[in-house]
Design a binder for these strands. Sequence first.
DNA 1: CGATCTGTTGATGCTCATCAAATCCAGTGG
DNA 2: CCACTGGATTTGATGAGCATCAACAGATCG
Lengths: 245, 245
Amino acid sequence: MIDNVIKKLENYQRFTLEEKNVLAQFMGPARRLEKGDNVLTEKGNPQEVNVLIEGWAARYKITKEGRFQTLAFLVPGDFCDIHITLVDRMDHSLYAVTPAKFCSIAKQKIEVLYEEYPRLARAFFWSIIVDESILREWLVNIGSRPADQRIAHLLCELLIRCRAAGLTDNHGYDMPLTQQQLGEAMGITPVHTSRVITRLRNAGLISIANRRLEILDWEEMKEFAEFEPNYLHLDHAEPSLVKEF
Amino acid sequence: MIDNVIKKLENYQRFTLEEKNVLAQFMGPARRLEKGDNVLTEKGNPQEVNVLIEGWAARYKITKEGRFQTLAFLVPGDFCDIHITLVDRMDHSLYAVTPAKFCSIAKQKIEVLYEEYPRLARAFFWSIIVDESILREWLVNIGSRPADQRIAHLLCELLIRCRAAGLTDNHGYDMPLTQQQLGEAMGITPVHTSRVITRLRNAGLISIANRRLEILDWEEMKEFAEFEPNYLHLDHAEPSLVKEF
DNA sequence: CGATCTGTTGATGCTCATCAAATCCAGTGG
DNA sequence: CCACTGGATTTGATGAGCATCAACAGATCG
């Protein structure tokens, strides 16, 4: 059940059997959420750390003017809120993009882990660093690239992240996001997102059929999106994963 | 000399004299940079962690199309690159916004600190978490707010951060950024930034005179910018700082 | 098989980019 | 002290990219 988490963290470093067992023991029971349910809400004060085990989720904030901004997408293995081991309040919310399964680790157990399993602790912090790095790339995307490059870049990123999570088949993956959700992440309206995607399709870069995305011309796509995966810091990942970079 | 760093980290928690001394001993000699100099560059592989002691700095990336995107502003006490204790390569660069002074801590010393001074280590990680939180708010800014609110929001944030660094006088602070630099951060052109600032000035919200910014009507400004400082996670800061929130 | 969510297409307008020129300002050297 | 210089800011004119409004077509599901 925690295979996804291990798989994710082993993109940073390999673990001993003992370490894996410790992590498994610390995991609480799984909880299921329906599509659209909130996982955690802003100003919440969670007492455990949540890990996404199955399905997709997303971080978001809503402005006072009512605009919805997505801040990150999570795939299986990703942490929802490790940072609450250091600050006590959430400053944003998360919802389930698809039906999803989460496990939780009690805050105190994380403390034990920080003290007694430094290698696991480091991997946790690595994941924070990577999240931050992704945020920076999104900032570049939204601040400096036109809408079509933004969407293309996001689709590239999701491919690599899904691949690191073992969820791809070559250059294809199940991509549950609606065009509205893609737009909410990249700061564009669903209408314009639709036009942009049509353009990417007509350019022969991608194909989408019932929630499955194929990147038809990876080299062209990378070029077009200016996609450079170094910011995902997967340098220690399995060679099979990295070779494509 | 490291007062700024201590001051910053004590916004998270207070330290013992011993802890402060340890931190002071670990600091290498100061290094001066001129305005515009690079502090660290992308793909660099620094062997020490740099701390900004004096002046301002900024993180940035440049896209292949040549667009310059600022990712963060640093004020005295801020870390340039703690994350390189966990990933080995920089994925962005930093430059000195003003003439600036930096100290460095060797990577190995940070390791010692992580192992033997957990409270200092936690404060370091807190600062990473806060950086990440600021990035999320910038994303909301750029993705979901019009240009005038963006700039106003940024100016509010910088006021509070400068205050936390002891660099304000009530609602005024020295703000060395040019309009171009403000624009590079918020994803707008210098021309438009100028128009926006003129509007904020005419609305009686701010005044700017030789690199000093005054927020004339803090309540109105907060309202206009939708500024809510909770994302800066200064809850443990001195009451005098927090009272204004 | 209607109801609802998602995606597509067209028309129009606003925000902001771009290009260009003028002004202001701080610093420099004669 | 003043002329010169280069950077920063301001202002105007024009246009592109994207938002918004609206209607419709598919898809999905009870």
